[in-house]
Design a protein around this nucleic acid. Structure first.
Lengths: 149, 149
DNA sequence: CTGGATGCAAACTCTTTGCATGCAT
DNA sequence: ATGCATGCAAAGAGTTTGCATCCAG
């Protein structure tokens, strides 16, 4: 059983459950996301790859579908601040380091105890569904670069 | 000794140290940030308030100066994902909860042990300078709202 | 059939850039 | 005097919206 089958099924079921349509575009975008393995993707990237599978697919559809996949839980939006949206095909708990100079975003696998944080959030009536840590700084490559931007 | 005097001095000293200019615009924007107390601000908000102090100040100058204040450490950029930039006048360690529906961003004061995370980042050559946790979910107000957007 | 999804294009928001002027140093 | 910072305006990037058409259910 491939993951592709698994997530396609998950998407199908979830759409039916919501009374939404299972369209070729949605399945194609999910297939693209699936095919990428575990990494970060931009909207443009998905658009380009989805265009190969469904010629004529439009950018607004890609935006809408990525939002949908995030909502379903098949995709996670990375908390970068500003700039282009970045989605993460890894939906399991992990965190990110972002370079202030080159903008690179790299996964960090480390456990962070956010129990107290979540308790605090919940105590104010918040219903959390995603917790991610963003570490900002300068990456190794940029740090090695004299002082250019 | 007011905080205003303190941060104005910090800004002045830092600018001199860098060989950059101490301009009325920079001081005014810093004064605006100072006057707001501890809260979140958008670029437009700062622009409007700074315009009262320095009529004719321009938006590009506000952008540049907010970046400068962030660099100096007098301001922190909130890791929202996409949309308008949000700056935090609180520069001490704390975290945020962001509502997916209304976009509200609220401070969370809770300790999070990010030692392992920082070690992992540093082990890959990263030089971290800011760590913030973003909890996404639905706020109390939106959760109470039937199902509208 | 019927309504939600799509494609297209345009609009919109936020942010950055280029250049001439001005002012801090 | 010197050149960085500013103001203005325009461009640029990313995202969203409106509407007619189309197709999944």
């Amino acid at each position: 059983m491939s993951d592709a089958t698994t997530t396609t099924t998950r998407l199908r079921d979830e759409l039916r459950r919501r009374g939404q349509r299972v369209t070729p575009q949605r399945l194609a975008i999910n297939a693209v996301v699936e095919s990428l393995g575990r990494r970060h993707v931009t909207v443009d990237e998905v658009f380009a790859l989805a265009s190969d599978r469904v010629p004529g697919i439009s950018l607004p559809t890609v935006y809408a579908t990525l939002d949908l996949l995030e909502d379903v839980g098949l995709l996670r939006r990375v908390a970068t601040e500003g700039g282009a949206a970045v989605f993460d095909t890894r939906t399991d708990a992990h965190h990110h380091v972002a370079c202030r100079r080159c903008g690179a975003i790299v996964d960090i696998d480390a456990t962070v105890d956010s129990a107290e944080l979540l308790r605090a959030a919940e105590s104010m009536g918040f219903i959390p569904d995603d917790t991610q840590v963003v570490v900002r700084g300068v990456c190794a490559v940029c740090a090695a670069t004299p002082r250019a931007a």
